[in-house]
Amino acid sequence: MVLTIEELKKITKSLLFTMSEEQYLTLQQEFTLILEQMKLLGAIENLDQVEPLVFPIENENCGLREDEVEKCLSVDEVLKNAKESMMDMVKVQKVVG
């Protein structure tokens, strides 16, 4: 199975980045290999009754913390890494046209 460049572009669009035409060709080749590797997953049968394992260790060893009043970050600290801010808010470009 080979994914078309158009199909790959659809995925990158949903991930909010772009790639060069040359990079898409490399990606297409790599994808062909990866999909070959994925066939190895298809070789394992009778999975209907198997529960998926999401986290490796059940949460029995973990506990909920008590609620404690804590000082949170100041607005200045929160905004420290933002490129632009205005009136204690992150400033961004126009969202709606």
């Binding site: 991930l15 909010l16 980045f17 772009t18 990606l27 790599e30 990866i34 470009q93 126009k94 046209g97």
Partner: peptide, 27 residues
């Protein structure tokens, strides 16, 4: 606009290899 800024930021911010992993993850 806002969305275009994010796309351009992520396009120049991630390397090609990382983008390829993300595309597979997205798939």
């Amino acid at each position: 606009d806002f969305l275009d800024s994010i796309i351009k930021t992520r396009t120049v911010g991630f390397s090609e290899l990382v983008k390829r992993r993300f595309v597979f993850g997205g798939y």
